[in-house]
Design a binder for these strands. Structure first.
Lengths: 258, 258
DNA sequence: CAGTGGTCTAGACCACACT
DNA sequence: GTGTGGTCTAGACCACTGC
């Protein structure tokens, strides 16, 4: 549990290979990460105070602060002055979907209200080669495939299919998805203990096939954004592959560069 | 020049309006920002050491560090241990284009080598309503419009038009653009003292018109990404509006979410 | 070697939230 | 008031770079 400060500068330097030096605050960060991953601290709950953690790990408050700072920048923790530090969650994100970068062309985000979600189905099937590659499984391993449509102001805008490893999501059904009122990632947190922590997206322009065009109520030949998302839990474990088709008639994918 | 530490906690609190409290390190950050904007420190050059700055502003090194830390996170400064802190530049970005998120579907970034740039033209004209809105000008104000094609491995992939306010870019010509070997933003830094600091992009799926399709060597009806970029200098001043058409036959727009 | 940024500490005080 | 995170300081020492 406790970390001996004396091991700070030189822990794994004996073997001839790399330097393998890691600062104390990085070691603390790893310990915090372990506590997050193990579920010791639940989504949305407060973690111990900085002084408590400093005492627990036998380091100064400043060192704990630096570790927490980095986890806050990575959106794993949320600091609230006067109240404490909390485990980040998708459940209370003011913007309803933290990973959804689609914004209406006119009006602000709240003008069109919450999305209407329509679950098409949730099937158990065997991973294709492509799905297996993304999720770090073997082809043929059992996966769940969810299909749904999101509409904004009654206008269908997003058609997406997503694949989840069957193991961690055992028991997920279309009915459960339909009855849940909130972001899907919030359901994953509360029901399956899976927190999506970061994601990578690959975006292309495509034309839909007849079935896709029908579901999105667009004419055949209408160009759409294809958004392929791979979402990760802790330790960079891929946990969801998602294939989305976005109509950009009245919306755009918004991105900030710096 | 120097900041009196005694004014740290309460500078503008007299007027009845807002709290207007800002921590010391934020004030230091503003001063650093001023020095960057005024050109006191050139692109790529080293700024004074932390101890020098601490002495200049009469604060502790830690306070300067925190200010620099934030500017480094925003990619305005670059820290290099043992050497110093440097003004960020687009000239020495190992990845040739810092704001270009297009990546090849297969192979790494270096596999296809540097882009072949073809400047189509560079015209002086009057800002349309849309361009004026983006660049915070008045419709009819003089702007420069540059058009070019980027090809990767001889395959034309990006067609883009960009608009610049004529004033700050006085003297920019197609010939100057053609003869410059390096990112356009690097030329803007060295020739016009304009550093692009951040940008916002809006992405949609579109089909090109006949002329666009011909320039990109794609069949009519091929879906393309439309990437509208607004780039800013210091103080959030918009300085470039760019309209790009990306072919996603062999590439994709890559984005990281966290 | 000197100079730079990077880490760590210990303590003081401030701003904010709850009770 | 008490407890939380946020700021600021002063000083020590480490790690990296280049002379």
């Amino acid at each position: 549990m406790a970390v001996d400060p004396s091991i700070s500068t030189d822990t794994l330097d004996a073997a001839g290979s790399g330097p393998a030096f890691s600062p104390l605050y990085q070691q603390i960060k790893s310990l915090l990460l372990q506590s997050l991953q193990s579920g010791e601290w639940k989504s949305g709950a407060a973690i111990p105070s900085e002084l408590d953690l400093a005492a627990r790990y036998r380091v100064s408050q400043g060192t704990v602060r630096k570790a927490i700072d980095e986890l806050a920048v990575e959106n794993l923790l949320v600091r609230r002055q006067g109240k404490g530090t909390f485990v980040a969650t998708h459940a209370e994100d003011h913007v309803q979907y933290r990973f959804l970068k689609l914004a209406p062309d006119a009006g602000d985000l709240s003008s069109e209200g919450p999305a209407q979600r329509t679950i098409i189905d949730c099937k158990r099937l065997r991973a294709s080669a492509e799905v297996a590659r993304g999720l770090a499984l073997r082809a043929g391993d059992p996966v769940l495939q969810v299909s749904r449509v999101l509409a904004f102001g009654a206008v269908p805008t997003i058609l997406e299919h997503l694949w989840l490893p069957a193991g961690p999501f055992k028991g997920l059904t279309a009915e459960r998805l339909r009855s849940y009122d909130g972001p899907m990632y919030a359901l994953f947190e509360s029901e399956f203990g899976v927190r999506m922590v970061r994601a990578e997206e690959k975006i292309r322009a495509v034309v839909p096939d007849a079935e896709q065009a029908a579901l999105l109520h667009v004419a055949p030949g209408t160009p759409l954004l294809s958004v392929e998302r791979l979402a990760f839990t802790y330790k960079d474990t891929p946990m969801e592959l998602r294939q989305g088709l976005y109509s950009t008639q009245n919306h755009h994918y918004r991105n900030a560069l710096s």
